[in-house]
């Protein structure tokens, strides 16, 4: 497998040095692995800290900046960061108003953020945590680790970030973050596995002519394998899975925010074609789309494929979604 890297051991540090070079408005500590919004502690705002394994770029470092995250903690590829990183990030962004940890629901992330929260509170920093768990492919039951956190992470970080930017207190920012997560669901489809730098070969075998439904973002196989389908059939399957769950949890009418997300190796040409199919299926089902975001935002290295995330959004959430944001990967109105 050919990769644009120096060595598997240095990919994360090398990327952090690149982020520092490209984005002088971020403070990047390559050694300690944290990316902090410059001047994060000024302005008396609530801090927003997220993190997770690397390999999902631009998540999370690409979302650090005014209107979104205060800091991000990248772990090794597909491996949650360690508590030391979140502790340092919390200390670097806390203005005394407290810090919200945005945690994707994976056992490793949950355990490491939990330890960091305990250490931070011992240091006198108020911490709230929001767990993102939007992936409908995993049944939320006693027999699994629960639904995974995927595309909704972007919605949570953007909307809670806008609330924090506007000066909302910690409990309110946390409440909005939880509301966004509760109103969001996702479903992912892989057309190829991905290759981690450490392993150098695909994480699972996907024969030509087949695709994998219900995948996560760590190269783990999905729940079901099917013969390759045209984009409009994939859209029907993905949107159907998401909407059925949304109808159960959020029966009220109202428009949705839609994220049509690429997994990393699918060209935007294909992704836009897929977006047309997604919107057509949503229209058929009578779901009104208020805003659509298309692109590679919550990726899985070089996996080909896509995911659909929908968030049922009321006026307040839409207003916060539209608020200015200025980060490496998401910027508008600012």
């Amino acid at each position: 497998m050919r990769m644009l890297i120096n060595s598997p051991e240095t990919v994360v540090a090398d990327a952090l040095r690149g982020i520092a070079a490209a984005h002088p408005d971020l403070e990047v500590d390559v050694e300690r692995r944290i990316v902090v919004r410059r001047g994060a502690r000024e302005g008396g705002r609530v801090g927003l800290v997220s993190g997770g394994g690397s390999g999902h770029e631009p998540l999370h470092a690409g979302f650090v900046g005014p209107g979104m995250l205060s800091a991000a903690c990248p772990g090794e590829v597909f491996t949650s960061p360690v508590p030391d990183q979140m502790l340092r990030a919390a200390a670097a962004v806390d203005s005394g108003q407290g810090v919200l940890f945005v945690v994707k629901n994976y056992t490793g992330d949950v355990l490491n953020f939990q330890m960091a929260a305990e250490f931070a509170e011992e240091d006198g920093i108020r911490i709230e945590q929001v767990l993102v768990n939007d992936d409908v492919a995993v049944t939320d039951s006693l027999y699994t680790a629960g639904r995974r956190g995927t595309g909704a992470t972007l919605f949570v970080e953007k909307i809670a970030g806008a609330a924090a930017e506007a000066g909302a207190p910690l409990d309110e920012v946390a409440e909005i973050a939880r509301r966004v997560n509760a109103a969001s669901r996702s479903f992912g489809v892989a057309l190829s596995a991905c290759t981690t730098p450490a392993k150098g070969s695909p994480t699972f075998d996907l024969p030509d002519g087949e695709l994998e439904l219900g995948i996560g973002i760590h190269g783990e196989p999905g729940r079901e394998r099917r013969p390759v389908m045209p984009s409009r059939e994939i859209a029907r399957t993905a949107v159907g899975a998401v909407v059925e769950e949304l109808e159960q949890i959020a029966p009220q009418d109202g428009p949705v925010l839609a994220l049509v997300n690429g997994m990393g190796a699918t060209p935007l040409l294909e992704l836009y074609g897929f977006t047309a199919d997604v919107c057509a299926v949503l229209a058929e089902r009578g779901v009104q789309v208020a805003r659509t975001l298309v692109g590679n935002y919550v990726t899985s290295l070089d996996m080909a494929g896509c995911s659909v995330t929908l968030c049922r959004a009321d006026e307040e959430l839409l207003r916060l979604w539209d608020a200015p944001v200025r980060t490496a990967a998401l910027r508008w109105g600012a």
Binding site: S80, P81, V82, P83, G108, L111, M115
Partner: peptide, 12 residues
């Protein structure tokens, strides 16, 4: 181990 491993294995 907690400070260097990450994932679930580090804390566990």
């Amino acid at each position: 181990l907690i400070s260097t491993v990450g994932g679930a294995s580090g804390p566990l």
